[in-house]
Design a binder for these strands. Structure first.
Length: 271
DNA sequence: CTTTTGACCTGACAGC
DNA sequence: TGCTGTCAGGTCAAAA
């Protein structure tokens, strides 16, 4: 499900309701996520106050004294705020009960997501340490992409989805950004010029910004913390538009399989 | 080191 | 009404 715009939309929705609040308790109904949810999470979090909520790539980091609650939404995860006592449905795996009769609820049908406690400094943890550039960080630009891609034969689409290079760009926004930059998704990353990377870096930022303004993309189950749906899916240039005319040149949009993932592109606009 | 492949898991949908 | 196959916002580990 969630790429940067969906995770950031979730963060913004939660922010005013969780930061400064104390945790009254944690209920783990199913610990079998990507990694087991710690059995002692209730003991760890109970009584602690959430002092901040940050995003690093597609991870949400709930800052607490002495550590951090790390949440990843995987493919189908979602966080919502519900009144205490709201009956749990089939895939509601973790509840964090907050002071003020509100429960932060993690729902994740496919269970590819994660909910972990990180002791100490979050950035030092193995899951965050090797993450690449944040698209909205000033350090993320064409020069950086150009430098990191030298000698790489991997397709640019795959390169963009590598979190060790740049974080937050997943299957939808990689296709979209490449369209806006006019780059063919199969082109080897190492054989793209500095000038074209300048354009690509800008296209990535612009695409993510527009998706953010739309509240993200709701393909099937994404919703913000308050339940509202994203609507970027109605304004994609190429994603999900196989056979439909390119919005720029009217050529039919094509579908390509790269690895196990679908890539959409315009055969005329992207070279 | 890079690249490729398979694995994890459930639900929705198409086709027979 | 099944059943089977394919696909879906991710990313890690192992093999080549």
């Amino acid at each position: 499900m969630p790429e940067l715009p969906e995770v950031e939309t979730t963060r913004r929705g939660l922010l005013p309701h969780v930061v400064g609040r104390r945790v009254d308790g944690v209920v783990v109904r199913d610990a079998r996520l990507r990694w087991p949810v710690p059995a002692d999470l209730d003991r760890t979090l109970r009584g602690k106050r959430i002092t901040g909520l940050r995003r690093r790539g597609k991870y949400l980091v709930f800052d607490c004294p002495h550590g951090h609650l790390l949440v990843h939404l995987g493919m189908s995860g979602r966080l919502s705020l519900v009144p205490d006592g709201t009956p749990a449905r089939r895939h509601d795996h973790v509840d964090v009960q907050l002071e003020g009769h509100t429960t932060l609820r993690l729902t994740d049908p496919r269970r590819f997501g994660a909910c972990l406690w990180l002791e100490g400094d979050a950035e030092d943890h193995a899951l965050l340490r090797h993450l690449g550039l944040e698209p909205f960080d000033p350090a993320f630009d064409g020069a950086a992409l150009h430098r990191l891609s030298r000698g790489r034969s991997t397709a640019i689409k795959h390169f963009l989805m590598d979190a060790r290079i740049v974080t937050g760009v997943g299957n939808i926004y990689a296709s979209e950004a490449l369209f806006h930059a006019g780059i063919h998704p199969s082109r080897p990353a190492g054989r793209i010029s500095r000038a074209r990377y300048d354009r690509l870096a800008e296209a990535i930022r612009a695409t993510l910004e527009r998706a953010l303004a739309a509240g993200g993309t709701t393909l099937r189950d994404f919703a913000a913390a308050d339940g509202s749906l994203g609507h970027f899916q109605s304004q994609t240039a190429v994603y999900g538009r196989e056979g439909e005319p390119c919005r720029a040149c009217r050529a039919p949009i094509r579908l390509l399989r790269q690895g196990q993932r679908s890539t959409y592109y315009c055969p005329r606009c992207q070279r």
